[in-house]
Design a protein around this nucleic acid. Structure first.
Lengths: 225, 225
DNA sequence: AATAATCCTTAAGAATTTCTTAATATTTTT
DNA sequence: AAAAATATTAAGAAATTCTTAAGGATTATT
């Protein structure tokens, strides 16, 4: 994620809020610097101030759009003519006026990311995986075992989804925690174990002798292919 | 395909994106010009700005609907009152707020075309969905439950339409808000919850034990297939 | 233009479901 | 047999959803 603003305080403030959401943040102080960074790093979303030295936000938007089709959120001061922005910017995806509520900015960032992700995986298309009678439907968020629907809690579902979409691969407890909770695993190993137990109760015929969700001693867990 | 907007930049930008998808594009700069073009050429979908000189988008929609039943996608600036659009139920099939994501517009265009093209011929086709006794008629904007017509408010209708046309798929509260209100959901989660409750009161036999509109804990809501 | 009716949003607390923790038990490896 | 990793259980904490009601906004009616 790239934050472009000529004021350091704003860059830093936005960085703090975004990092808090678990995303990597790059910063640039004008359009030129932003374009350079874009060439060098993979970026999934840009927050772009309008008023900047060297290369302003509007021009930068055009240049970015020539190359990449990633979400662009424009920041503009209230005094500037928002209508003009509205009219001009077919290229930007959203805009926020300064002074802005950081939480709102975060909400808009999330919204943009969601939007692109949904269109990427294409709407309404069912992606169903079947592993020896254990199935997952990622659009309906539904899992069935031996033909019967299984009622999983959100965390349980995420763990199963992770393991099933990577069937056969072993995930350490720490990996599972980090990918599901989106934060480092610090003394939470047992939490994962408890969830594994619950999942087994729901998807396995005999939770003590799991056929689907297997442990790999000393390494982690995996879903049998 | 007809694009109607008083700003040349927007007309042209949309044209580029649509042509990229392989469709023929006609352009008009206000409602009157649009109606003229409609008489002269076969058009399968219209993208219509609201704020235009001479004949605005809302009035144009009425006039178009008198003659043709083709998909209409409305464009509106965020500053305008979206509730008004909802409340008016002018007969548009979808709408997008400026500034918009070109990819999203293209996706919505495709979605509309899919909907209408499914049954071969084009005009005046009723698409009725029936899910275990809950039906929706998208052209009449009518919903029935257990044979009885259900009177839904505009927002309620939009939510039901979203869920029914994607039956089985789970939508988070944020997704629902964004797709119905056309803006990011910031502290409006409960608003959705209240609407869900009202809808259940109207379509379910027992709102406490919903058979149609189900919650998926920690994830969202879905309409049972 | 005023009134009535309908609809939307907000807020606050209740009800429900889920998560984590901690203490203990079991299994596997060395 | 000891150490390490995983498994189990239950109870309190936390989070999510549900419900209700009131006030504001909008639309329809008189």
């Amino acid at each position: 994620m790239l934050v472009v603003d000529d004021e350091k305080e704003i860059r830093d403030a936005i960085e703090i809020y975004l990092k808090n959401e678990g995303v990597t943040v790059l910063k640039a102080k004008d359009g030129i610097e932003a374009l350079e960074l874009l060439n060098e790093h993979p970026v999934h979303l840009i927050i772009l101030d309008i008023m900047m030295p060297r290369l302003d936000g509007i021009s930068a938007t055009y240049k970015i759009r020539e190359k990449k089709n990633i979400p662009i959120i424009i920041l503009s001061a209230k005094s500037e003519d928002t209508d003009k922005i509205l009219g001009l910017q077919v290229g930007a995806d959203d805009y926020v006026t300064k002074p802005f509520n950081p939480m709102e900015l975060v909400a808009r960032v999330k919204s943009q990311l969601r939007r692109y992700v949904t269109f990427g995986t294409f709407e309404g298309i069912k992606k169903v995986i079947d592993l020896n009678g254990l199935t997952i439907d990622q659009s309906a968020k539904e899992v069935t075992a031996h033909g019967e629907p299984v009622k999983l809690t959100p965390i349980e579902y995420k763990i199963v989804e992770l393991l099933m979409t990577n069937a056969g691969r072993v995930f350490s407890i720490h990996e599972i925690y980090e990918r599901v909770w989106k934060e480092p695993c610090y003394n939470a190993e047992n939490t994962v174990a408890v969830h594994i137990r619950k999942i087994r109760e729901k998807i396995e015929i005999d939770a003590k002798n799991p056929r689907y969700l297997k442990v790999v001693w000393g390494i982690g867990y995996k879903m049998e292919k």
